[in-house]
Design a protein around this nucleic acid. Sequence first.
DNA 1: CTTCTCCTCAAGTAACTTCTTGAATAGATG
DNA 2: CATCTATTCAAGAAGTTACTTGAGGAGAAG
Lengths: 223, 223
Amino acid sequence: MGNRQAKNALFDGFAEVAKALGNGRRVELVDVLAQGERHVEELAGEIGQSVANTSHHLQVLAAAGLVTTRRDGNRIYYQLTSGDVEHLWTVLRSVASTHLDDLEQLAVDYLGNRSRLEEISRDELARRLEDGTLIVIDVRPEAEYAAGHIRGARSVPIDQLSNMLRGLPTDVEVVAYCRGPYCVFADDAVRLIRRRSRKARRLQDGYPEWRTAQHPTEANLLP
Amino acid sequence: MGNRQAKNALFDGFAEVAKALGNGRRVELVDVLAQGERHVEELAGEIGQSVANTSHHLQVLAAAGLVTTRRDGNRIYYQLTSGDVEHLWTVLRSVASTHLDDLEQLAVDYLGNRSRLEEISRDELARRLEDGTLIVIDVRPEAEYAAGHIRGARSVPIDQLSNMLRGLPTDVEVVAYCRGPYCVFADDAVRLIRRRSRKARRLQDGYPEWRTAQHPTEANLLP
DNA sequence: CTTCTCCTCAAGTAACTTCTTGAATAGATG
DNA sequence: CATCTATTCAAGAAGTTACTTGAGGAGAAG
């Protein structure tokens, strides 16, 4: 057996990256950053932590090479270093959901019962986008919509949904989407819309998966 | 923002899996287990740790759903829960090597200078296997060979290589492989063989990648 | 230059991790 | 049944991590 010390150091190096994802708040940060770049204060709000603590977590992610920064005026914007990082997160998510016994229960506790939420696949939505026979709403925070969204979608952050529904004909079908399979905004939106006796479905997964699947997107078009 | 506590718990769940890979010794265990099942004592030897400590690390991996066990007589064999886990490890490895600045140096410290080690691609090796114009040697520990190896390869653990070379014609080309891109056995083998003025190359990556690429394998055929 | 804003750093505490040692246990073997 | 063996558990020392609070610093704006 070769040089044990050097071997340990190398594998500790790989573990360094895993360790960076080894904290729920940092995983949340990666999930949010997969939607597009954000500045620290916003990120702190998203993960429900102090700015100082959020900054610290971002430093840990940066030290592992998972995020980079860009300054624009007074603000510092964080972004994922590359699509690889997003890919690592989706693989981690999928392994956890397949192999970690407790995860299903945790998901139910957070998301509630999804059995009555109908989904629409990316391919079907892509087809129906052409017809114009449905309305697509992006229920993520506005900053994420601004950073990139499904082409033709309208930004309707979840707290504005009720208002928005008032101006909508009752016979039109709505598709809601948000960050990914474990994002609760779209579920809440679909439940609310269905309670108002309209037809609503949730897009399978979320925006990053739509983008990765090379379906049409656009950015910075506020409604 | 929905239920912060439930959301935290869910993302802590994902982080649980990352945390399980957040230790160099556990990553080594996964790398070894990607070769095939092994029992605790062997695993302890591979990662250079006490049996008790190795057992503890295996419990951590098991709690995250990454490994399962099987009893055979007096021994307990650990294995990766599924190919997904191996996939997660390869993605982690690739992200680390691309994005973690220090990793290159750590790899050089462990593996040495690879610039003079010629590689052979999986596809080329698969083609040349048919001709019989080269010899393929598996320089991993014998237990890993027994658990599965490239079809037609011969088990030559690295400490037996010198002996084995004596009985070999000098004009035959040798291809050596081991566990993966960061495994040092095949490098050492190629260097040693070249010092003896024979032609030798290292297979790109290692056995798990060969198997994943659906090239021919076999098991339990000791030479 | 001064002030303001956004972000990072430092210090401190409580809770976890890793690894060691020695004892305990479950199951196989005789 | 008793014994043996491979593995796990338990307790403790040394180090690390997460989060809080308050101070510090870099750049923008006035």
